[in-house]
Design a protein around this nucleic acid. Structure first.
Lengths: 206, 206
DNA sequence: CAAGCAAACGGACAATTGTCCGTTTTCATT
DNA sequence: AATGAAAACGGACAATTGTCCGTTTGCTTG
């Protein structure tokens, strides 16, 4: 075949790196662990680590992958089972889910986004905006926004742009800053995000 | 007096650093210049530089200060002179201004925000969210949002949170990414942001 | 199974960031 | 003007990131 599969030892290294990094992150926090430390602990060379992951953000992107997949499946299932509900309700539910997921994985996501800011364009390294988490969320949110817009007269904003803007607004850095400054709880934040989008406030949320 | 003024030599160093950094940034771009290089070029020690600015983002925050002040004054003047116009129009104008300013100073702003992501809490270093640029914009936008909300029935979102979310959504990283992906011009972006907020589209914008 | 080649390795090296501390300078007080 | 304490200095040092290249290893071909 023209494209050779990943070499067996390389694949094992990849898994080893992921497991090592994950446990080190659990122990000392993402910021408390250096790339050098990960390589040393895994018993591999610095070059080997950097060949697979251009920087810590890249590595975090891979670590979060399992979680992302579960998230994507859960949201997908919900949307499939609730087609008849008003699009507003579905969107509200999806946004709530995002907040929960984002708060749970905030350290990883912030690390992913940090490198994104620092590097700017030209860079083969994967960015948050190419991650399946972002693309999936943007896809679902924009679909729901478009559905909501159908029933409204007048000129409507580009749903993709609006979905993108929502995700940016709900990214960890900004989210935690304003949450602390205004002294809101997570549930209050969810409600405020909902109102911001002219969505009904969930009964589940206080 | 209990609080001693900044020592004369220190004040001169500060100005020297700012001028040196600014011209180096103009020459090689913000990312193309290292803190070490700035110190060397200015003819001062590394320690001196870092005592004044904890990192490059901190330095950028000071460099942008002059521009910020002019921006704040222009927006302030406009708002003072146009109290009678509909709040929607005023908000649209302010958002347009932001896009222009942000695109012009995007490299500085991205650098400021990059360190913000990387460090997270506890850090005496100034952050974008404490900058006068952010605080001023959030103040004006939230006021206008509140004014608009007055004429609308039903539950309204917290204007401060919405203003904050808008600024986050229009930050350089996200802005440039989606602008390129959708192939929009700057003026098209302005219009889409306006529509996103249910604002009238400016005549000036195509 | 031998051979050879491309892929992967790893650790040394370079560059950048960030800290520390002994020394120097300023400025208020005398 | 002399003095002494606080502030500022600067460059060496430590840590982290990121790169490079000679060597090794696995996979395919004959």
């Amino acid at each position: 075949m023209s494209v050779r599969a990943e070499r067996k030892d390389a694949a094992e290294h990849r898994k080893l790196i992921l497991r090592t990094a994950e446990s080190l992150f659990d122990l000392h926090g993402v910021r408390g662990v250096s790339m050098h430390q990960i390589a040393r602990t895994a018993g591999i060379g610095q070059g080997t680590l950097y060949r697979k992951y251009a920087h810590k953000g890249d590595l975090c992107l891979d670590i979060i992958q399992d979680y992302t997949q579960a998230f994507v499946e859960e949201v997908g299932r919900y949307l499939a089972k609730n087609r008849e509900k008003p699009a507003e309700d579905r969107l509200g539910w999806v946004l709530d889910m995002w907040i929960d997921a984002m708060e749970k994985k905030s350290e990883l996501i912030m690390t992913i986004q940090a490198h994104h800011c620092a590097e700017s364009e030209e860079s083969r390294a994967a960015s948050f905006f190419q991650s399946s988490l972002y693309l999936f969320m943007r896809g679902r949110i924009s679909e729901l926004l478009a559905e909501i817009a159908e029933s409204r007269p007048g000129p409507n904003a580009d749903p993709v742009l609006t979905a993108h803007a929502l995700i940016c607004a709900m990214a960890p850095v900004g989210h935690f800053h304003i949450k602390r400054e205004l002294g809101y709880t997570k549930e209050q934040m969810k409600n405020h995000y909902r109102r911001m989008c002219y969505l009904p406030v969930s009964n589940a949320n206080v």
